[in-house]
């Protein structure tokens, strides 16, 4: 259960999720971390650089 509270927006609708960020699980040195916020600066830089590998032979 997320503890988001229901609020009302400008149009009078009930909304939820203000301030709730997406989780981005990434692998660092073999184990997973739920957010890159915890990575040290060097690893953050490395994650930014990562390109995707194509599957063409």
């Amino acid at each position: 259960m997320i503890n988001g509270s229901i609020t009302t927006n400008a149009r009078g609708e009930e909304v939820i999720g203000e301030g709730i960020k997406f989780e981005r699980i990434r692998r660092i040195t073999g184990y997973l971390v739920g957010t890159v916020d915890r990575f040290n600066n060097a690893k953050r830089a490395e994650v930014r650089d990562r390109v995707k590998h194509s599957l063409s032979l």
Binding site: M1, I2, N3, G4, S5, I6, E13, E14, I16, G17
Partner: peptide, 24 residues
């Protein structure tokens, strides 16, 4: 970080209201 309407979540079938203050 932005909110979505509760009605939208209901339509998607992922709205579960356990009390009036939180859903998920």
């Amino acid at each position: 970080g932005e909110p979505v309407s509760v009605e939208k979540l209901r339509q998607l079938g992922v709205y579960i209201n356990y009390n009036s203050d939180s859903i998920g």
